[in-house]
Amino acid sequence: MLSKSQARTFFISGTLACAVAFVGLTLDTFRRIPAQTRAAAITPDVARGKELWDHNNCMGCHSLFGEGAYYAPELTKVYERRGESFIRGMLTDPEAMFKGQRKMQKYAFSEPDKAALVAFFRWTGQVDLNGFPAKPPLARQATPSRRDVPQPQIFGQLCIVCHSLAGQGGNVGPALDGVGNRRDAEYLRRWLRDPPAVKPDTRMPKLGLPDSQIDELVAFLEAQR
């Protein structure tokens, strides 16, 4: 039967062996982190972005690299998913986009601060995370009704936040399937320039898109029949 001194030897030797292995792996990991995280791309702007991220406890609601709280969306790939103008919009006035929905604190970020946070998110999106976050394996792929009018990039980043197409997207605004049957190009153009001017009680904010993007979107939306 096991004696007390044998048990002690098991405890001490096992712990030591594991601790040595752990320190060894840590040393190796630190050798590899600069390449895997593209540490060279951590500009002063990115570093400032991380500082803002920490000092406002963004992790208290959001998650980054999947770490944080589960009250607000995961932000590792937010730059790729939503684009710069959406991020700036949220940082300026979080409630403009999601009126009456779950609230985010309104911060008085300066323009350089916003640029720093955008730079930080661009960097986090480029870190090699061994496949996280995974693409949803069971997601339905939206099939455009007309293939000759390609989906503009801004549609996938911005419009989809509140509207859905073929079942993919948000449910704040109405679904856009067949919107071309209901609205003509002229209406869509007026609407996209300034929604509250067309319909004062709408929840959709004025997005301030450049004309070139509005043209692209009008052509795409009109083709949805």
Binding site: A7, Q36, E67, L129
Partner: peptide, 22 residues
């Protein structure tokens, strides 16, 4: 406590899956 450390120390690895480590 021997088993705890045998599993727990290297078990830290489950926090290092998706944060940009090898």
């Amino acid at each position: 406590v021997g088993f705890t450390f045998l599993s727990g120390i290297l078990g830290t690895g489950h926090h290092y899956y998706w944060i940009g480590t090898p």
